[in-house]
Simulated scan of single mutants.
Amino acid sequence: MNKWFILLLIVCSLSLTTSCSISDVNHQEKPSNSLNSQKNSITLDSNSVQSNDFVLRMISTKDEYIVGEKVELYAALEYVGQQAEITITHAASPIGISLHENNSNIGFGYVMDQPLISTILKQGSAFQQEYKFSGISFDGSNKEYKELYNQLADGHFPEGEYVMTAKANFTDITSDLREDYEMQVSTSFRVVQ
């Protein structure tokens, strides 16, 4: 009986410790009237979204590329508010970019270090993040995946229809009310023979 009681105590303690840790990691201070999440964002056009004083864009320099041609993609986060500059905090970058190839239904995410970095955004001047293949995927089992992975890792986009998604996660720490932002926007392009 004593053994079971001690085991139950240990399991309950671990359970409480784990749930508190996860809760603390995910805790974000948000004012109750804050309009800073994706659901309250305004879509400016198909490749950009605005949330309060911030605009996130996902840009491909062309809608269609030829196999072997350099594909130029980047995301831009711009502060469009009234102040000359503001300070945001974020992980290694305020923007992460993922890739999905529609024909094969294969997607590649991104991994980001989680230090707390601050960046000053000046009014009208965008922070830009160029797309670089990360190789992070949840499906590495089939031949088609391996072929696509190897080509993208070598910097070559094979024939296909692609969707790039930029996700911005950052906190505006300029005012006394720290506001957390989560924004997302996508763009698509084709690579043809």
Rank of each mutant, 00 (worst) to 15 (best):
N47M: 07
P94W: 00
T165G: 08
N33C: 02
S34M: 09
M58F: 01
Y131N: 07
M1G: 14
Q184E: 15
S48Y: 09
V111I: 11
N2R: 11
S13W: 12
L56Y: 00
K122W: 05
L116K: 00
A153V: 08
I106K: 09
N40F: 13
I42E: 10
D53C: 01
S37I: 08
G124V: 10
T18K: 11
E179L: 11
I120M: 08
A166G: 09
S19Q: 15
A168Q: 01
S141H: 12
Q128A: 05
L177N: 10
S93W: 09
D154E: 10
A92D: 05
Y131F: 15
S41Q: 04
A91S: 13
N52V: 10
I173V: 15
V80P: 01
N102M: 13
F157D: 03
K132S: 15
A153S: 14
S104T: 03
S13R: 00
C12Y: 11
K167V: 09
M58T: 04
K146P: 00
M112H: 04
T61P: 02
Q82K: 14
T174M: 02
S137L: 01
Q129P: 03
D176T: 04
D154R: 08
K39M: 07
N102V: 13
E161Y: 00
D63F: 06
N47K: 12
G160V: 01
S60L: 01
S104M: 05
N142F: 08
K30F: 10
G109H: 05
G140I: 07
F127K: 03
A166I: 09
E69T: 07
D24L: 14
A153E: 14
K122F: 00
K132D: 13
S186C: 12
S118F: 14
S186K: 08
L116I: 13
G107L: 08
T165E: 14
F189M: 00
T18C: 13
Q28V: 12
Y65C: 07
L177Q: 10
S32L: 10
N142Y: 05
R57I: 05
S175A: 13
S19F: 12
S21C: 13
E147H: 08
G109L: 02
E147M: 10
L73F: 00
T165Q: 13
L99P: 02
Q123W: 06
G107R: 01
V11S: 09
Y131C: 01
N2I: 09
Q83W: 10
F108V: 09
I136F: 15
H100R: 12
K122L: 05
L16A: 12
